[in-house]
Amino acid sequence: MQQIDKSLRIKEETKVVIDHLNDNGNYVIHVYDVVEREKGSHTATIGWYKVDVTKGTMEEYY
C-alpha cells in the first residue's frame, strides 16, 4: 500500500483498498475518494492498479 501512496502522491483522505487477488495472484487495488453531498455520498474512483508483489511492480488495471 505504501508503494501506491508514494508513487501516486495521493491525499491523506484518499482511500487505498485491496479489492481482490486476480487469477495470477496479483493484488487489485482500488484508489478512490468519498464525496460527501447533502443527500448522501458516493465514491469517485481515481484508479485501479495491479500490484505484483513477487516482481515489486505496479501498473494501471482495467
Rank of each mutant, 00 (worst) to 15 (best):
Y49F: 12
N24W: 08
E59G: 09
H20T: 13
H20I: 10
A44L: 08
E36W: 07
H30K: 12
Y49V: 00
L8Y: 10
E59F: 02
E13G: 13
L8E: 15
E12T: 08
I29T: 00
Y27S: 12
I4E: 07
Q3K: 09
H30S: 06
Y27P: 01
T54Y: 10
K39L: 05
M58C: 03
H20E: 11
Y49E: 02
S41H: 09
V28P: 02
D5A: 10
H30G: 00
N24E: 06
T43D: 05
E13M: 15
E12W: 14
H30L: 08
K50S: 11
V34W: 03
K39T: 06
R37Q: 12
L21K: 03
Y27M: 06
W48A: 00
T45N: 05
Y32N: 01
S41W: 07
A44C: 01
Y61R: 01
V17H: 09
Y49A: 01
E13R: 15
I4M: 13
G56N: 14
T45W: 01
V51T: 03
L21G: 10
V28C: 01
Y49H: 14
H20R: 10
V31M: 05
D33K: 12
V17D: 13
D23H: 14
G47S: 06
D23M: 03
S7I: 11
V17S: 05
D33W: 00
Y32P: 04
S7T: 12
V34S: 06
M58V: 10
Q3A: 13
G56L: 08
E60L: 01
I10H: 11
N26R: 05
D19Y: 02
Y27E: 10
Y32D: 11
V31E: 04
